[in-house]
Design a protein around this nucleic acid. Structure first.
Length: 282
DNA sequence: CCATTAACCTGACAGC
DNA sequence: TGCTGTCAGGTTAATG
Protein backbone atom coordinates (compact mmCIF):
# COMPACT_ATOMS: atom_id res chain seq x y z
CA UNK A 1 0.00 0.00 0.00
CA UNK A 2 2.79 2.45 0.33
CA UNK A 3 3.29 5.57 -1.70
CA UNK A 4 4.09 8.81 0.08
CA UNK A 5 0.63 9.39 1.57
CA UNK A 6 0.43 5.86 2.93
CA UNK A 7 3.90 6.10 4.45
CA UNK A 8 2.98 9.43 6.01
CA UNK A 9 -0.20 7.88 7.39
CA UNK A 10 1.82 5.04 8.92
CA UNK A 11 4.29 7.52 10.38
CA UNK A 12 1.53 9.54 12.00
CA UNK A 13 -0.01 6.37 13.38
CA UNK A 14 3.28 5.26 14.90
CA UNK A 15 4.33 8.64 16.24
CA UNK A 16 2.32 8.57 19.48
CA UNK A 17 3.58 5.12 20.44
CA UNK A 18 7.20 5.45 19.30
CA UNK A 19 8.37 9.06 19.43
CA UNK A 20 9.99 9.98 22.73
CA UNK A 21 9.75 6.36 23.87
CA UNK A 22 12.24 3.65 24.64
CA UNK A 23 12.66 0.51 22.58
CA UNK A 24 12.82 -2.20 25.24
CA UNK A 25 13.44 -5.15 22.96
CA UNK A 26 13.49 -6.08 19.30
CA UNK A 27 12.75 -9.50 17.83
CA UNK A 28 14.32 -10.17 14.44
CA UNK A 29 12.96 -13.33 12.86
CA UNK A 30 15.07 -13.51 9.71
CA UNK A 31 18.44 -12.23 8.49
CA UNK A 32 17.14 -9.96 5.76
CA UNK A 33 14.31 -8.35 3.84
CA UNK A 34 15.37 -7.10 0.45
CA UNK A 35 18.92 -6.81 1.78
CA UNK A 36 20.55 -8.17 4.93
CA UNK A 37 19.69 -6.29 8.10
CA UNK A 38 22.54 -4.15 9.42
CA UNK A 39 25.08 -5.72 11.73
CA UNK A 40 23.70 -6.34 15.25
CA UNK A 41 20.50 -4.44 14.46
CA UNK A 42 18.55 -5.64 17.51
CA UNK A 43 21.37 -4.77 19.90
CA UNK A 44 21.80 -1.31 18.39
CA UNK A 45 18.08 -0.61 18.80
CA UNK A 46 17.47 -2.05 22.25
CA UNK A 47 17.48 0.46 25.08
CA UNK A 48 17.47 3.41 22.69
CA UNK A 49 15.04 6.30 22.87
CA UNK A 50 13.41 7.39 19.63
CA UNK A 51 13.95 11.14 19.53
CA UNK A 52 11.89 11.75 16.42
CA UNK A 53 9.97 9.79 13.84
CA UNK A 54 10.35 11.48 10.47
CA UNK A 55 9.70 10.72 6.82
CA UNK A 56 11.74 11.31 3.70
CA UNK A 57 9.98 10.27 0.51
CA UNK A 58 8.73 6.72 1.17
CA UNK A 59 11.21 6.12 3.99
CA UNK A 60 10.31 6.26 7.67
CA UNK A 61 13.23 7.56 9.75
CA UNK A 62 13.56 6.93 13.47
CA UNK A 63 16.26 9.11 15.04
CA UNK A 64 17.77 7.39 18.07
CA UNK A 65 19.59 8.81 21.08
CA UNK A 66 22.64 6.83 19.91
CA UNK A 67 23.05 9.31 17.02
CA UNK A 68 21.95 6.61 14.62
CA UNK A 69 18.78 6.62 12.53
CA UNK A 70 16.73 3.56 11.71
CA UNK A 71 15.69 3.68 8.06
CA UNK A 72 12.55 1.74 7.17
CA UNK A 73 11.09 1.15 3.74
CA UNK A 74 7.81 -0.72 3.33
CA UNK A 75 8.42 -1.91 -0.23
CA UNK A 76 5.22 -3.06 -1.91
CA UNK A 77 3.54 -5.02 0.85
CA UNK A 78 5.15 -3.79 4.06
CA UNK A 79 3.04 -2.84 7.08
CA UNK A 80 3.77 -1.53 10.53
CA UNK A 81 1.15 -3.02 12.76
CA UNK A 82 0.53 -2.00 16.34
CA UNK A 83 -0.35 -5.29 17.95
CA UNK A 84 -0.78 -4.40 21.58
CA UNK A 85 -1.64 -1.20 23.35
CA UNK A 86 -0.64 -2.14 26.88
CA UNK A 87 2.13 -4.18 28.56
CA UNK A 88 1.64 -7.91 28.50
CA UNK A 89 0.39 -9.61 31.63
CA UNK A 90 -2.05 -12.39 32.47
CA UNK A 91 -5.17 -10.53 31.43
CA UNK A 92 -3.44 -9.09 28.43
CA UNK A 93 -1.55 -11.89 26.74
CA UNK A 94 1.17 -11.08 24.23
CA UNK A 95 -0.15 -11.08 20.69
CA UNK A 96 0.57 -14.01 18.46
CA UNK A 97 3.11 -13.61 15.77
CA UNK A 98 1.42 -13.29 12.40
CA UNK A 99 2.63 -14.83 9.20
CA UNK A 100 5.27 -12.56 7.61
CA UNK A 101 5.96 -10.65 10.83
CA UNK A 102 9.72 -10.23 10.39
CA UNK A 103 10.67 -7.69 13.04
CA UNK A 104 8.80 -6.83 16.25
CA UNK A 105 9.56 -3.71 18.30
CA UNK A 106 8.62 -3.92 21.99
CA UNK A 107 8.23 -0.43 23.39
CA UNK A 108 8.95 0.06 27.08
CA UNK A 109 5.66 -0.06 29.01
CA UNK A 110 3.80 0.16 25.74
CA UNK A 111 2.70 -1.53 22.61
CA UNK A 112 4.44 -3.81 20.19
CA UNK A 113 4.89 -2.84 16.58
CA UNK A 114 5.28 -5.62 14.04
CA UNK A 115 6.89 -5.05 10.66
CA UNK A 116 4.96 -7.40 8.37
CA UNK A 117 5.94 -7.81 4.73
CA UNK A 118 4.75 -10.74 2.64
CA UNK A 119 6.79 -9.95 -0.44
CA UNK A 120 9.87 -8.76 1.44
CA UNK A 121 10.64 -5.90 -0.92
CA UNK A 122 10.95 -3.74 2.18
CA UNK A 123 14.20 -2.78 3.86
CA UNK A 124 15.76 -1.60 7.10
CA UNK A 125 19.13 -0.06 7.75
CA UNK A 126 20.94 1.94 10.41
CA UNK A 127 23.04 4.98 9.57
CA UNK A 128 24.60 7.90 11.45
CA UNK A 129 21.94 10.59 11.80
CA UNK A 130 24.37 13.35 10.89
CA UNK A 131 25.17 11.74 7.55
CA UNK A 132 21.70 10.48 6.60
CA UNK A 133 21.58 12.56 3.43
CA UNK A 134 24.64 10.70 2.19
CA UNK A 135 23.09 7.27 2.74
CA UNK A 136 22.95 5.33 -0.52
CA UNK A 137 19.18 4.89 -0.33
CA UNK A 138 18.58 8.59 0.33
CA UNK A 139 21.25 10.53 -1.51
CA UNK A 140 19.80 10.33 -5.02
CA UNK A 141 16.24 11.22 -4.06
CA UNK A 142 14.75 14.29 -5.66
CA UNK A 143 12.92 16.99 -3.68
CA UNK A 144 9.96 16.29 -1.42
CA UNK A 145 6.82 17.06 -3.43
CA UNK A 146 5.27 18.81 -0.42
CA UNK A 147 8.44 20.72 0.42
CA UNK A 148 9.73 24.15 -0.55
CA UNK A 149 12.37 22.94 -3.00
CA UNK A 150 9.73 21.50 -5.29
CA UNK A 151 8.29 24.22 -7.51
CA UNK A 152 7.50 25.08 -11.13
CA UNK A 153 11.00 26.24 -11.97
CA UNK A 154 12.54 23.07 -10.64
CA UNK A 155 10.13 20.70 -12.39
CA UNK A 156 10.31 22.46 -15.74
CA UNK A 157 14.08 22.15 -15.63
CA UNK A 158 14.06 18.54 -14.46
CA UNK A 159 11.61 17.36 -17.12
CA UNK A 160 13.40 19.23 -19.89
CA UNK A 161 16.08 16.57 -19.81
CA UNK A 162 13.75 13.58 -19.79
CA UNK A 163 13.13 11.81 -23.04
CA UNK A 164 10.91 9.27 -21.29
CA UNK A 165 7.10 9.52 -21.20
CA UNK A 166 5.81 11.87 -18.49
CA UNK A 167 4.34 8.88 -16.64
CA UNK A 168 7.77 7.29 -16.35
CA UNK A 169 9.48 10.58 -15.53
CA UNK A 170 7.17 11.29 -12.58
CA UNK A 171 7.79 7.79 -11.22
CA UNK A 172 11.53 8.52 -11.29
CA UNK A 173 12.40 9.18 -7.64
CA UNK A 174 15.33 11.39 -8.61
CA UNK A 175 12.91 13.81 -10.32
CA UNK A 176 10.50 14.03 -7.39
CA UNK A 177 10.58 11.69 -4.40
CA UNK A 178 7.47 9.91 -3.20
CA UNK A 179 5.08 9.52 -6.10
CA UNK A 180 4.09 6.00 -7.09
CA UNK A 181 1.96 4.41 -9.75
CA UNK A 182 -1.42 5.36 -8.33
CA UNK A 183 -0.80 9.03 -7.69
CA UNK A 184 1.05 9.61 -10.94
CA UNK A 185 -2.01 8.30 -12.80
CA UNK A 186 -4.29 10.53 -10.76
CA UNK A 187 -2.10 13.61 -11.22
CA UNK A 188 -1.98 13.16 -14.99
CA UNK A 189 -5.74 12.85 -15.12
CA UNK A 190 -6.22 16.03 -13.11
CA UNK A 191 -3.89 17.95 -15.39
CA UNK A 192 -5.30 16.47 -18.61
CA UNK A 193 -1.90 15.19 -19.69
CA UNK A 194 -1.55 11.89 -21.50
CA UNK A 195 0.81 9.48 -19.73
CA UNK A 196 2.37 8.76 -23.11
CA UNK A 197 3.46 12.32 -23.81
CA UNK A 198 7.22 12.78 -23.84
CA UNK A 199 8.27 14.72 -20.75
CA UNK A 200 10.65 16.97 -22.66
CA UNK A 201 7.92 17.90 -25.15
CA UNK A 202 5.51 19.31 -22.58
CA UNK A 203 5.16 23.07 -22.56
CA UNK A 204 6.39 24.92 -19.49
CA UNK A 205 2.82 26.00 -18.84
CA UNK A 206 1.57 22.42 -18.74
CA UNK A 207 4.45 21.29 -16.52
CA UNK A 208 3.62 24.15 -14.17
CA UNK A 209 0.12 22.76 -13.67
CA UNK A 210 1.62 19.49 -12.45
CA UNK A 211 3.09 21.08 -9.33
CA UNK A 212 -0.16 22.12 -7.61
CA UNK A 213 -1.86 18.93 -8.87
CA UNK A 214 0.82 16.77 -7.27
CA UNK A 215 0.55 18.70 -4.03
CA UNK A 216 -3.22 18.53 -3.82
CA UNK A 217 -3.48 14.85 -4.73
CA UNK A 218 -0.96 13.93 -2.06
CA UNK A 219 -2.48 16.23 0.53
CA UNK A 220 -5.98 14.89 -0.08
CA UNK A 221 -4.72 11.33 0.18
CA UNK A 222 -2.91 12.04 3.44
CA UNK A 223 -6.07 13.70 4.70
CA UNK A 224 -8.11 10.60 3.89
CA UNK A 225 -5.52 8.37 5.52
CA UNK A 226 -5.61 10.53 8.58
CA UNK A 227 -9.30 10.04 9.00
CA UNK A 228 -8.87 6.27 9.20
CA UNK A 229 -5.90 6.40 11.55
CA UNK A 230 -8.01 5.32 14.48
CA UNK A 231 -9.02 2.15 12.70
CA UNK A 232 -5.57 1.69 11.33
CA UNK A 233 -4.11 1.63 14.80
CA UNK A 234 -6.69 -0.63 16.29
CA UNK A 235 -7.24 -3.05 13.51
CA UNK A 236 -5.20 -4.01 10.55
CA UNK A 237 -3.65 -1.11 8.70
CA UNK A 238 -5.08 -2.45 5.49
CA UNK A 239 -8.17 -0.28 5.59
CA UNK A 240 -8.74 1.48 2.35
CA UNK A 241 -9.41 5.12 2.22
CA UNK A 242 -8.34 7.19 -0.73
CA UNK A 243 -9.07 4.47 -3.29
CA UNK A 244 -12.71 5.46 -3.19
CA UNK A 245 -11.60 8.73 -4.75
CA UNK A 246 -9.58 7.34 -7.62
CA UNK A 247 -10.55 8.94 -10.90
CA UNK A 248 -8.58 6.56 -13.10
CA UNK A 249 -6.42 4.11 -11.17
CA UNK A 250 -7.65 0.51 -11.56
CA UNK A 251 -10.80 1.72 -13.34
CA UNK A 252 -10.11 0.44 -16.85
CA UNK A 253 -13.33 0.00 -18.81
CA UNK A 254 -15.26 2.26 -16.44
CA UNK A 255 -16.67 5.58 -17.67
CA UNK A 256 -14.52 8.66 -17.23
CA UNK A 257 -15.64 10.65 -14.21
CA UNK A 258 -15.72 13.85 -16.27
CA UNK A 259 -18.75 12.43 -18.11
CA UNK A 260 -16.95 12.87 -21.41
CA UNK A 261 -18.38 9.54 -22.52
CA UNK A 262 -15.02 7.84 -22.93
CA UNK A 263 -13.84 4.81 -20.99
CA UNK A 264 -10.74 4.62 -18.83
CA UNK A 265 -7.99 2.81 -20.68
CA UNK A 266 -5.08 0.73 -19.38
CA UNK A 267 -1.72 0.69 -21.12
CA UNK A 268 1.62 -0.70 -19.99
CA UNK A 269 4.58 1.67 -19.76
CA UNK A 270 7.96 0.59 -18.45
CA UNK A 271 6.32 -2.61 -17.33
CA UNK A 272 3.69 -0.87 -15.22
CA UNK A 273 0.01 -0.16 -15.74
CA UNK A 274 -1.07 3.35 -16.63
CA UNK A 275 -4.74 4.24 -16.43
CA UNK A 276 -6.03 7.29 -18.26
CA UNK A 277 -8.90 8.82 -20.17
CA UNK A 278 -7.95 8.95 -23.87
CA UNK A 279 -10.39 11.80 -24.43
CA UNK A 280 -9.57 14.08 -21.49
CA UNK A 281 -5.83 13.44 -21.46
CA UNK A 282 -3.79 14.55 -24.44
C1' DC B 1 25.53 8.54 -20.36
C1' DC B 2 20.17 7.03 -21.01
C1' DA B 3 16.13 4.01 -21.51
C1' DT B 4 13.90 -0.36 -21.18
C1' DT B 5 13.52 -5.07 -19.09
C1' DA B 6 14.09 -8.62 -15.74
C1' DA B 7 14.33 -9.70 -11.12
C1' DC B 8 13.38 -9.80 -6.29
C1' DC B 9 8.90 -12.52 -3.45
C1' DT B 10 4.17 -13.88 -2.00
C1' DG B 11 -0.69 -13.67 -2.44
C1' DA B 12 -5.10 -12.69 -4.66
C1' DC B 13 -7.99 -13.51 -8.30
C1' DA B 14 -9.86 -15.03 -12.93
C1' DG B 15 -10.53 -18.73 -15.90
C1' DC B 16 -10.55 -23.47 -16.98
C1' DT C 1 -10.97 -28.08 -5.51
C1' DG C 2 -7.00 -27.15 -7.70
C1' DC C 3 -4.18 -25.94 -11.36
C1' DT C 4 -2.19 -22.06 -14.39
C1' DG C 5 -1.48 -17.57 -15.66
C1' DT C 6 -1.61 -12.66 -14.59
C1' DC C 7 -1.19 -8.90 -11.81
C1' DA C 8 0.09 -6.02 -7.61
C1' DG C 9 1.20 0.30 -4.12
C1' DG C 10 8.74 -0.29 -5.36
C1' DT C 11 13.34 -0.23 -6.55
C1' DT C 12 17.66 -2.18 -8.17
C1' DA C 13 20.72 -4.80 -11.24
C1' DA C 14 21.35 -6.20 -15.73
C1' DT C 15 21.05 -5.38 -20.54
C1' DG C 16 20.67 -2.88 -24.95
Amino acid sequence: MPELPEVETVRRGLQPVMEGRVIAKVDVFRPDLRWPFPEAMAERLQGRTIRALRRRSKYILADLDSEETLIIHLGMSGRMQITQSAPAHENHPAPERQKHDHVVFHMLDGPQIAFNDARRFGAMDLAPTARLEQHWLIEKLGPEPLGNLFDETYLIDALKKKGAPIKTALLDQTVVAGLGNIYVCEVLFRTGISPKRKASNLSAARVATLVPAIRSVLEEAIESGGSSLQDHRQVDGDLGYFQHNFAVYDRSGDPCKSDCGAKITRVVQSGRSSFYCPKCQR
